Amino acid sequence: MIILGLTGSIGMGKSTTAGMFMEEGVPVHDSDATVHRLYSGAAAPLIEQAFPGTTVDGTVDRTKLSNAVLGKPEALKKLEAIIHPLVRAEADRFLAEHRNNGTPLVVLDIPLLFETGGTGRVDKIVVVTASPEVQHKRVLARPGMTEEKFEAILAKQVPDDEKRRRADFIIDTGEGMESARAAVRAIIAELSPALKARN
């Protein structure tokens, strides 16, 4: 089984690209979606204990939590210490299941692949990118996003040019959906001989 790590900075089109892999029949483990589930499940009581007042009816209120940790490195570390092991456990279950089923190719969609030292968990890395202008426009269009929040998020992320340098494959989502879809198909096609060789 080949494990493809999919990553990219905020607003680069990673979720859309993950969807394209799924459309091509490649199973994807989505870290963001896992966090979302955990926020209304196993992680909620742990987060409430660490950050009192950040949950409502047993579900994490993302705005309240964001206010509690944004711009506070120690608070963020505390949150990551709760969330990262839970997400990792879910990803490990996903990988084990597909390994048992003989799935040839899977994608781990990990927003902070480089930042969390996750490169050793994957065989190849796909980085999604776009121009700074496109990124800025996309991110600032998100509900509740401000320049200050955007800058704080960017400051925590490995710069885009370094991510591209360390990638095995690059998908530029700024060139449109069809171009991105073609790039996804090309990656799957390129890995197919390797998949056959492993079987």
Score class of each variant (00 low, 15 high):
residue 151 E to M: 04
residue 112 L to M: 02
residue 128 V to I: 14
residue 188 I to T: 12
residue 148 E to V: 02
residue 64 K to P: 00
residue 20 M to W: 11
residue 39 Y to V: 03
residue 154 L to K: 15
residue 98 H to Q: 06
residue 139 V to S: 10
residue 163 K to H: 00
residue 116 T to W: 11
residue 105 L to T: 06
residue 134 V to S: 06
residue 93 R to T: 10
residue 90 E to C: 08
residue 137 K to V: 12
residue 143 P to L: 02
residue 194 A to C: 09
residue 106 V to M: 01
residue 67 N to K: 13
residue 118 G to T: 00
residue 27 P to D: 03
residue 162 E to G: 04
residue 179 S to K: 14
residue 143 P to Q: 07
residue 27 P to I: 09
residue 63 T to P: 00
residue 196 K to F: 02
residue 102 G to M: 13
residue 187 I to S: 03
residue 167 A to Q: 01
residue 58 G to I: 07
residue 149 K to T: 06
residue 42 A to R: 11
residue 103 T to D: 01
residue 2 I to W: 11
residue 15 S to P: 08
residue 98 H to C: 07
residue 197 A to Q: 15
residue 161 D to N: 12
residue 100 N to P: 00
residue 48 E to D: 12
residue 171 I to S: 05
residue 29 H to R: 07
residue 190 E to R: 15
residue 99 R to V: 11
residue 118 G to N: 11
residue 108 L to K: 10
residue 183 A to K: 13
residue 155 A to C: 04
residue 71 G to C: 06
residue 117 G to A: 05
residue 32 D to K: 09
residue 161 D to W: 14
residue 174 G to T: 09
residue 124 K to I: 03
residue 11 G to F: 04
residue 141 A to H: 04
residue 22 M to V: 10
residue 46 L to N: 04
residue 40 S to F: 01
residue 70 L to F: 15
residue 30 D to S: 14
residue 16 T to R: 08
residue 111 P to W: 05
residue 59 T to D: 11
residue 154 L to C: 15
residue 182 A to M: 05
residue 44 A to T: 10
residue 4 L to D: 02
residue 151 E to I: 01
residue 88 R to S: 10
residue 19 G to I: 08
residue 10 I to N: 09
residue 8 G to D: 05
residue 24 E to R: 14
residue 157 Q to K: 04
residue 164 R to Q: 13
residue 160 D to F: 02
residue 117 G to T: 04
residue 120 G to E: 12
residue 85 P to S: 08
residue 188 I to G: 09
residue 115 E to T: 10
residue 133 E to M: 03
residue 79 L to R: 00
residue 185 R to N: 06
residue 107 V to F: 07
residue 126 V to D: 04
residue 97 E to G: 00
residue 166 R to E: 14
residue 79 L to V: 00
residue 106 V to A: 05
residue 3 I to T: 14
residue 56 V to P: 01
